[in-house]
Write a protein that binds this DNA or RNA. Structure first.
Lengths: 246, 246
DNA sequence: CATTTAATTCACTCACCAGTGAGTTATTAA
DNA sequence: TTAATAACTCACTGGTGAGTGAATTAAATG
């Protein structure tokens, strides 16, 4: 297996990993295969996140990995399969973590969950992954944001993310027992829109604020988002209740 | 000039328009030219909004309009020019309206603008356009949302929308004089994320809510969004002030 | 060492795309 | 009526895309 010619952003990570391996023991065939596939997935993830499904060619990916382009057809049958594999690889991780966090929160909160608590569990768990997970995870975030409003990604979005989202919504309903169901769904819609834009890292806020805020400053988002959105939820749900009760 | 073979969503609009014209007077050459270009722009708008720049071919557009594909090269030099023309056509309208609304609001509010008032001016003006402007405007919304996180659209976003956004932010600062500047920028970031997702009409909220909420129900968004976001703004800005003042 | 199997490349195919320039038809203007 | 111009079509080109199957190289196994 040949080492990548082009140097990806994950270069340091990769070097460390392979160094550790060679010192420890020669990698098995399965390991090598897995590593090659990961390299392809990493690169595809980055490129798809930047240009979308149609804006990336298999040759683009292959070139950046440093292999012949038909090798991608060898490992992943076709372009679509590769795209789906990128989507699936990390989806399970973030979903499991968030599901776990929501379970934990609900157990801890007992009969009195709060909107803010639920949102912290949902959002912070995810943001931590992007904060701590290195460039790969950041790229996946952008990939997901890109995929979420493309026909290619929409079905995956539903398939993978519906359970967590409905889990969150169930807790929100418990936290806001008097709220209209629509208000909760629309509130979630606002939350996810804001989150998607964050993950997309468009660089727009950097320019608008003349560098005061940075698109990739997930810490800043984490420090504000759950609280911001919780206030919004409380407000529209209260309004509705007031309107209804007269 | 040949009438479109394929029937677009705007069919009714177009029929009405052309009927009115034939009754009134024969259209001039310039009018015909303008109409043809609009038809191309409408179709390109729709397709770009669904599949992005690279997901659409000039043949796709031409086929749906019902003309030979090289005609698009005749009216618009190349694909990129067509894309830019789609972007520019309606951008000025929404920007002018919003700028006007913000001016009006600031004048009316005098020395005491509120976050909610400013957001109403900014958001409702825009949403009204999509509510009242018919399918064409709805498609433009989705087009903009798609474009906003693609390299092809990013520069346009800055070029066209920066002034209105900075105008909004200026009023928000006035409404929240004690707030940290970062908080206001991040708040705006959340607002625009939510708005973009709304305009994208992904259909996701429909499925999640089993039809209770609909992606294209801009009225529902208008009824909630400014208020929701204003509450968020107030909350994080208060928190910051409390943290600072101890 | 020989044989099988996996990994990788190579030479192609077929389809399609953006764009061009010549040619054709219709309008308009002189 | 003719000349000129605009609107539109056609045939084509150079280039690229995804994907295939044969060939080659490398690795593992008996």
């Amino acid at each position: 297996m040949r080492v990548a010619a082009a140097e990806t952003i994950d270069q340091k990570e990769a070097n460390l990993a392979s160094k550790a391996k060679t010192l420890a023991k020669r990698p098995t065939k399965a390991e090598q295969r897995a590593e090659m596939m990961e390299q392809i997935l990493d690169t595809a993830e980055l490129l798809f996140s930047q240009h979308g499904f149609h804006g990336v060619t298999l040759k683009d990916v292959a070139k950046q990995v440093g292999v012949h382009h038909t090798l991608l057809n060898y490992y992943f049958d076709d372009k679509r399969t590769l795209f789906d594999a990128v989507f699936a690889r990390r989806a399970v991780v973030t979903i499991d973590k968030r599901m776990q966090a929501l379970d934990d929160y609900e157990r801890a909160a007992g009969d009195n969950p709060t909107v803010e608590g639920a949102l912290h569990a949902f959002l912070d768990t995810d943001l931590d992954l992007y904060i701590q997970g290195g460039e790969g995870w950041k790229n996946y975030g952008a990939f997901g944001a890109q995929a979420s409003n493309s026909p290619e990604g929409a079905e995956f979005m539903d398939k993978y993310f519906d359970p967590v989202v409905l889990r969150l919504i169930a807790i929100l309903k418990k936290a806001l027992p008097d709220a209209a169901e629509e208000d909760i769904f629309w509130g979630y819609h606002f939350v996810t829109g804001a989150l998607m834009l964050t993950l997309a890292r468009t660089g727009r806020i950097d320019k608008l604020s003349h560098g005061l805020c940075r698109s990739d400053d997930y810490e800043a988002v984490k420090a504000r988002m759950a609280r911001f959105m919780a206030a919004g939820f409380r407000d529209i749900c209260n309004q509705r209740r007031q309107d209804r009760d007269g």
